[in-house]
């Protein structure tokens, strides 16, 4: 049974048909990439999985259990962590307070402490800035914080919405290294990216979204080799 499965999901914003029957599967332990141009519906897909949007049609299953009617806070409890688009950190709170907010849904102080150490091990820069106000972090640090905060919920599956956005290439590489580590430590990742090249280096499989529909899917290597993908997303 797949860890996460979307089955023919349709999502509307009023009259706008944003997702037109999307089916996606993510297996336990995988990194799956979701590629697509601006406005293709990537963010919409992640928000639907988190319960922030409701599909009008279709199902979302987590380990076989249907979660598409559950409110967001219950879905978080079930193990879905979401680092939203655009590094939405709590700008006026400190780094530590942001991370603790990520653990809001949990009630095991011991485990929370463990995960805090784990996040600091993954992102040593955050530890140095533990009591700095998050709004004053650099863009890269804010992205680290957003990922770290999502990890604090100890999710089974981590939904990442464009973690490379607006970052220098070196930093992007560093972040993707860390994502790989997070994955090998046992967290499944569904990764939305515009940076198809980087995404496909760490993902095992990928989906290409086009105006609300899955245009292509397959192994990372296949996608990398695909002419259309190369032309549209890999610049060649």
């Amino acid at each position: 049974m797949a860890l996460l499965e979307l089955e023919n999901v349709h999502v509307y914003y009023g009259n706008i048909h944003a997702l037109k029957g999307i089916s996606i599967q993510v297996e336990e332990g995988e990194v799956v990439a979701m590629l697509g141009a601006n406005g293709a519906g990537k963010t919409t897909t992640l928000r639907t999985i988190s319960g922030l949007l409701r599909p009008r049609e279709g199902r979302v299953h987590l380990r076989g259990e249907s979660i598409d009617t559950m409110p967001p806070h219950v879905i978080v409890h079930k193990g879905v962590g979401h680092a939203p688009e655009g590094r939405r950190i709590f700008a006026r709170l400190t780094v530590e307070e942001n991370l603790m907010m990520g653990a809001y849904a949990r009630a095991d102080p011991h485990g929370i402490k463990e995960d805090l150490d784990r996040v600091f091990a993954l992102f040593p820069r955050l530890k140095e800035r533990i009591s700095q106000v998050a709004g004053t972090l650099s863009g890269g640090e804010q992205q680290m914080l957003a990922i770290g905060r999502a990890l604090m919920a100890r999710p089974r599956i981590l939904l990442l919405d464009e973690p490379s956005m607006g970052l220098a290439p070196v930093l992007v590489e560093q972040i993707f290294e860390t994502l790989k580590t997070i994955n090998t430590q046992g967290t499944t990742i569904l990764l939305v990216e515009q940076n198809a090249y980087m995404a496909l280096t760490i993902a095992a499989r990928g989906y290409v979204l086009q105006t609300g529909e899955i245009a292509l899917s397959g192994k990372a290597a296949e996608l990398q080799a695909n002419e259309e993908v190369r032309r549209a997303y890999l610049g060649g």
Binding site: P72, R92, A105
Partner: peptide, 25 residues
């Protein structure tokens, strides 16, 4: 309290607070 932290998160960013697992209602 925990409730106070939830209020704080909601005050800062309602959408993210919801994604953090806070029951906004």
């Amino acid at each position: 309290s925990r409730l106070g932290r939830a209020w704080m998160a909601m005050r800062e960013d309602e959408d993210v607070a919801e994604a953090m697992g806070i029951n906004l209602i």
